[in-house]
Simulated scan of single mutants.
Amino acid sequence: MPKAEPEPLHLRHIDAARNMRRFYALSTQPTLVGEMSLVRDWGRIGTNGQTMVQTFDGGAEAVEAFARLERAKWRRGYAAADGNLS
Rank of each mutant, 00 (worst) to 15 (best):
27 S>C: 02
22 R>C: 06
75 R>A: 12
10 H>P: 04
21 R>S: 15
59 G>E: 03
10 H>G: 06
7 E>L: 14
45 I>W: 03
55 T>G: 04
66 F>P: 02
40 R>S: 09
16 A>H: 12
65 A>T: 02
1 M>A: 10
25 A>M: 11
1 M>E: 09
75 R>S: 09
62 A>W: 13
30 P>Y: 02
15 D>N: 13
66 F>A: 00
4 A>E: 08
19 N>T: 10
13 H>V: 05
79 A>G: 05
1 M>L: 12
78 Y>W: 09
66 F>S: 02
11 L>R: 08
80 A>H: 15
82 D>P: 01
76 R>T: 04
1 M>Q: 06
66 F>E: 02
8 P>V: 08
1 M>Y: 09
86 S>Y: 13
8 P>F: 13
2 P>I: 07
14 I>Q: 04
77 G>A: 05
8 P>Q: 02
20 M>D: 03
67 A>H: 15
62 A>L: 14
17 A>K: 14
50 Q>T: 10
43 G>E: 00
70 E>D: 04
83 G>I: 04
32 L>H: 14
58 G>M: 03
7 E>D: 09
38 L>K: 11
81 A>T: 00
54 Q>L: 15
45 I>G: 05
5 E>M: 14
48 N>C: 11
52 M>F: 08
58 G>I: 11
26 L>K: 07
14 I>T: 11
67 A>I: 07
63 V>P: 11
81 A>V: 03
72 A>H: 15
29 Q>F: 02
27 S>H: 04
8 P>Y: 12
77 G>C: 12
20 M>N: 05
66 F>R: 02
22 R>G: 03
46 G>C: 06
47 T>R: 09
52 M>L: 14
82 D>W: 07
19 N>S: 09
23 F>W: 07
68 R>L: 14
9 L>A: 10
21 R>M: 13
50 Q>A: 13
53 V>Y: 00
75 R>Q: 12
2 P>E: 07
61 E>R: 12
7 E>V: 08
40 R>L: 04
14 I>W: 05
68 R>V: 07
62 A>N: 03
40 R>Q: 13
57 D>R: 12
32 L>Y: 11
42 W>E: 03
41 D>K: 14
82 D>T: 01
25 A>S: 08
4 A>G: 07
61 E>K: 11
55 T>A: 11
46 G>P: 03
69 L>G: 06
86 S>E: 13
51 T>V: 10
51 T>C: 10
1 M>V: 12
46 G>A: 01
15 D>S: 06
9 L>R: 10
61 E>F: 05
72 A>Y: 14
31 T>E: 04
46 G>F: 06
52 M>E: 15
17 A>I: 06
